[in-house]
Amino acid sequence: MPFNKIHVPEDLPQATYRAINDQLHESLVETCGSHEDDFFCLVCRYRAGDMIFHPLFLGQRDPDRTIVIEIALLSGREDAQKEELFKDVRKRLANIGFNPANSIMFLIENEPIDWSFSEDGSVKTAWAT
């Protein structure tokens, strides 16, 4: 049940960040077993200077072109799946013409009790009925 939040420079074209999310979603389905219908994303635009990225920490990047991908998902994936996700997303970024060096990704894991999609309460409650 991933929810993606992608932080992008404000001048990044909509077609580009939509393609990034499409590739991210496909990778989550293929590497982490996410359901095809679990397709949620919030795009947050930032102005030049609003994000501060060290240009050389663990790789070289353009701080003005860097995107940050946050992925909140249910816990339970193996470390190998997470590593494969990171590698696969970067490969996919390159395939759509986005420099993968200009990406930072991280996962936030949680449990069904931490999600709610309706007035019925948490996903844990919904799954129990």
Rank of each mutant, 00 (worst) to 15 (best):
24 L>K: 00
13 P>Q: 11
5 K>W: 05
108 I>F: 09
82 K>Q: 09
103 S>M: 07
4 N>M: 12
15 A>C: 13
13 P>G: 13
6 I>W: 01
6 I>E: 05
112 P>K: 07
6 I>S: 08
128 A>P: 12
81 Q>N: 04
117 F>P: 05
1 M>K: 01
101 A>Y: 08
73 L>K: 06
106 F>N: 07
76 G>T: 10
28 L>A: 04
23 Q>E: 15
71 I>P: 06
121 G>L: 01
97 G>T: 00
115 W>R: 02
38 D>K: 09
46 Y>L: 06
53 F>V: 11
8 V>D: 13
88 D>L: 07
10 E>H: 13
3 F>D: 05
67 I>V: 15
19 A>Q: 14
116 S>H: 01
110 N>M: 05
58 L>M: 10
122 S>K: 10
126 A>F: 01
119 E>Y: 06
126 A>G: 00
60 Q>E: 06
100 P>Y: 06
69 I>L: 11
13 P>E: 14
27 S>C: 07
67 I>A: 09
14 Q>C: 04
25 H>E: 03
30 E>I: 02
7 H>F: 14
23 Q>K: 15
28 L>I: 03
111 E>M: 15
7 H>N: 12
55 P>I: 06
113 I>K: 10
49 G>H: 07
56 L>Q: 10
15 A>Q: 15
70 E>L: 09
9 P>Y: 05
48 A>L: 03
91 K>G: 07
49 G>S: 06
63 P>N: 02
11 D>P: 12
75 S>Y: 00
63 P>F: 01
3 F>V: 08
58 L>H: 08
114 D>E: 08
66 T>A: 07
5 K>I: 15
38 D>W: 14
122 S>M: 13
14 Q>V: 12
46 Y>T: 05
83 E>M: 06
116 S>W: 02
1 M>C: 04
124 K>V: 01
12 L>H: 14
7 H>A: 12
37 D>P: 08
82 K>D: 05
45 R>S: 12
17 Y>T: 08
31 T>R: 12
49 G>A: 10
120 D>L: 08
7 H>D: 14
88 D>H: 15
78 E>K: 15
17 Y>A: 12
89 V>A: 06
122 S>Y: 14
20 I>R: 11
78 E>S: 13
47 R>Q: 11
14 Q>W: 00
76 G>P: 11
110 N>H: 12
107 L>H: 00
49 G>V: 04
107 L>D: 00
45 R>C: 11
84 E>W: 00
100 P>L: 03
125 T>W: 09
54 H>S: 04
121 G>D: 01
102 N>T: 05
68 V>T: 13
34 S>E: 02
101 A>S: 14
110 N>Q: 04
79 D>R: 15
75 S>D: 13
23 Q>T: 11
90 R>E: 04
74 L>F: 07
94 A>P: 11
73 L>I: 07
92 R>P: 05
92 R>S: 03
40 F>W: 08
86 F>R: 02
88 D>R: 15
57 F>T: 08
49 G>P: 11
43 V>Q: 03
85 L>D: 03
81 Q>T: 02
124 K>C: 01
66 T>D: 02
94 A>D: 14
78 E>L: 14
54 H>R: 00
108 I>G: 12
73 L>M: 10
27 S>D: 03
22 D>M: 04
